[in-house]
Amino acid sequence: MRIQYVLQEIGHGLRRNLTMVIAVIVSTAVALTMLGAGLLMLEQTKAMQGYWYGKVEVAVYMCNTNDVGHATNCTSVITAAESAAIYTKLHGTPYVENIIPESQAQAYQHYEQAYGSTALGQTATEQDMEQNFRVKLSDPSKFQVVQDSVGNMVGVASVVDEQQLLQPLFTFIHIAEYSAAGVAAVMLVLAFLLIFNTVRLSAFSRRRETGIMRLVGASNFYIQMPFLLEGAVAGLLGGALASGVLIAIKAFFIDGIVAPHLSSIQFIGWRPFVFIVPLLLVVGIMMSVAASVFTLRKYLRV
C-alpha cells in the first residue's frame, strides 16, 4: 500500500511538472558531465606523466646501440667506466640532490607501464631503451647547470628536462580542468535553483493533499518523501545522462577519432569510469535531495 502510494505520487509529480523536471535533469546532467570530464582530465594527466614525473627533474640518457653514430658523444655503447665518470661528475654538480640510476631493463619496464597500449609502446624493445641517471635537483629550474656539467661528456646521448617536455601540454589540460570545474560549479548552482523552483511548484500544486495529511497526523517523513524521491529520481536520471555522455565521448571521440591520430599519447582506459560513474549518480541524487530538503523546510510547513 505504502510503496504503491509513493510510486504513484512520484509518477504524478514528475508528469505534472514535466517541463521543469526536464530542465532539472538536463542542467544536472551538464553539471555532472563537467564534473566527470574534469575528473577524467585529471586521470589523463596522471596517465601521461609516467613513472618518473614529479619525482625527478632531469634525465641524463646514455648511449645505446641506436645512438652510436647519431648522437655527438656516442662513439660506442656506454661502458661501465664512462657511466661511473658521469655519476661522479653529476655528484659534484651544484643543485644535484639525488641521483637514481635506471638500467635498460628498468627503463623498459617503466616505458611499457606508461605507453604499453600505444603503437609506440608495442613496437619498442628493451634494446631501444637507454641506460640513464634520473637526477633530482634542489632547485628545479637549474636544468642548465646539469646540461653544462655533463652534456658534453663521452657516453652522454642527451640531457632532458622532463618537466619542460610535458609542461605546455599539462598547462593546457589544467586550464581545461579549471574551466570544466567552473562550468560544473555554475551548472550546479543552476540545477539547485531549478530543483528549488520545481519542488516549490510541486508542493504548491499538492498543498490540498499535504494540508489534509498534516491534519490527520501523517508523519513529516511520509508527507515529504514523495517530494524527496521525485528530486532523487530527477537527479539519478541527470547522473545517468552525464555518465552516458562521458562514455560516448570516450568511446567515439577519444578511442574512435583522437587516439588513432595521436599514437604517442597514452589515453585513459575504462578503469576511471568504474568510480566516476557511481560517483556521478550519487552526487546527482545527493544534490537533488539536498535541494529538495532545503525547499521543503521553507515551503512545506508541517
Binding site: 489534509i212 495529511m213 490527520v216 511520509y222
Partner: peptide
C-alpha cells in the same frame, strides 16, 4: 476540503492510508 479527484471511499481512506 475534500480531494476532488478521489471518490468518497478514497477520500475517507486517505486519512488512514497516510498514517500507514
Amino acid at each position: 476540503r475534500l480531494l476532488p479527484n478521489k471518490t468518497v471511499f478514497q477520500n475517507v481512506a486517505f486519512a488512514l492510508e497516510v498514517i500507514g
